[in-house]
Design a protein around this nucleic acid. Sequence first.
DNA 1: ATGGCTTGTGAAAGCGCTTCCATAACCGCC
DNA 2: GGCGGTTATGGAAGCGCTTTCACAAGCCAT
Lengths: 336, 336
Amino acid sequence: MAVTIYDVAKAAGVGISTVSRVLNESKNVRPETRQRVLKAIAELGYRPNPLARNLSRPGFLSVGVMLGFLTNPFQVAVLHGIQQVLSEVGPNLIVYSIDSAERRERLLHGISQGHRVDGLICVSFAPGPRHRQRLRRYNIPVAVADFRDPELLSVYVDNVRGGYLATRHLLEQGHRRIGYIQDVQEQPNGAFGNRPAQDRLEGYMQALAEAGLPVEADLVVQANVFSRAEGARAAASLLERPDPPTAIFACSDMLALGILEYARDRGLTVPDDLAVIGFDDIDLATFADLSTVRQPMVELGRQAAQLLWQAMRGQPLESRAVEMPLELVVRRSTAG
Amino acid sequence: MAVTIYDVAKAAGVGISTVSRVLNESKNVRPETRQRVLKAIAELGYRPNPLARNLSRPGFLSVGVMLGFLTNPFQVAVLHGIQQVLSEVGPNLIVYSIDSAERRERLLHGISQGHRVDGLICVSFAPGPRHRQRLRRYNIPVAVADFRDPELLSVYVDNVRGGYLATRHLLEQGHRRIGYIQDVQEQPNGAFGNRPAQDRLEGYMQALAEAGLPVEADLVVQANVFSRAEGARAAASLLERPDPPTAIFACSDMLALGILEYARDRGLTVPDDLAVIGFDDIDLATFADLSTVRQPMVELGRQAAQLLWQAMRGQPLESRAVEMPLELVVRRSTAG
DNA sequence: ATGGCTTGTGAAAGCGCTTCCATAACCGCC
DNA sequence: GGCGGTTATGGAAGCGCTTTCACAAGCCAT
């Protein structure tokens, strides 16, 4: 099928070792011979096969990173952290961005049985039992970032506590009716949901309970995708009702920015008419003066990459799970 | 060194083909044998070598993407576009993020002679002559996004025109003293600079000349890195002088957001006290009501990926260079 | 000339896997 | 109880490259 080093050798009337030498710019090739080989390479359109090359030299590892859309700043930040670590230590970083549950399964299937990578990092989710089993069978280490899983290397935050912190803060500001917007994504089992967002909801409920307030089902709404537009839409559904909340906790800053946008369009004053708090503390939160719960996004990625890399090299791990700190950041969107 | 399929076969007392069958979950392996093999795999910590596997089956290609920081929304958007296309067609996407000129050279060196990828996309820069020569020699196709290069597959915008559009718009709003902030990055040759930003400066100068205005060297400042903080710093250096400009054109939205932040901190009204226009039209520009010159970032990546993929498959290209449209987007930061 | 060098080159042995092919063991059937 | 037809398994030939090794020239100083 493809043109190989043998074809080139034959065309140039030399042995394959000579072609290889030309390719690797080693010494001891007569200029004239080199020219003949280069000519043959050019004429045949020969392209060396990276796989074959790496096979016959000290191994070059690669790790795969599976994440959702590259439009999600949180995930990009995590990727950035992973990148930082891996670019130092060496392995190739192969990015698999997943836009649907179906594609995720397909990719995971390929990876878990296809031996395409030497290590895997999943961001904000964990592979299902079947994939997991195969990955373990092949001794492909797996790290999850932004997810807690006892079986895998995991780096995570206490999302329940995060939800609690955000909600308690709003309660302390005197709010009694607090909306929660969570983003959902399609899961492989066909269900919709999202573990971190679910956990934050739990924290939200805890805080309400602690304050002796009921959880009103109406005040919890879902946004389908991760975007400002969805945040605005969700805010609308929350606020355009008889008895609207005075504060909203969005499970991501991006959604929260959408809420702020909606508020501005409607002429609502923040935080007086409506208080808003997000989650993540993305770069833009400062710009928008958005209160939020900060999670160390880049560090999440770094730690996951570090853990994975240690496992890949067979080094002993002091721990398989790392919890990262969460911090309430109060800005003007909740405290005028 | 590493444990191979032979070690496993020996440990399990079977042939390597049987191990391979177990690994690939093919039929015709007695359950008992399978167990023995799995046990051996687990005990030896055997991990199949992805390279070797892919070598002996229909080829699996990979393309490398070299870009700057993953914190730059423009570059992330381009990456997103690339990702969209390549995830459909198949090859692995290997991301090389570059934080210094030195690292870029080192990586490029490895890639151009190391045969690590089957195709390469460079975002916002082009490989230097030496790398380029080697890449050509090995028939590794190269596409550049956000850069124009006659020798390579390139997808670009007319940055001169973009600078012109932005500046003319400010002139039409009545501004006569217009600042320009450009970001610079270290180049392999040790110089600092950035081709797109340089071109936009040229457009800026064209527009001024057309309006019969002089280009004042004081009004052109540089930001060292791509960030809001740098934008604010540059704005400060421009505005805290005797005769400050009434409008600023920043060569990226991120810098422009920094300017807006600075203006807000100083109590300046936008656009009355200071008009600001950016470049790119990143997602957040809408949120910040920032006027800008829109470039189709995702599409830039998509086109580059498409061009590259066609070249990789040896398909004829109708064109090696694609110019993408630019569009002035007027929002409240320049027009009250 | 002649024994060492260095230099240019090809043959062949891997690298770790998949897969084709051959063999052996086993099934049920007339 | 012997025959075609499965089913389980090992041997060996690649996949496309790098690299060691051996060998043939060519070089210099003797």
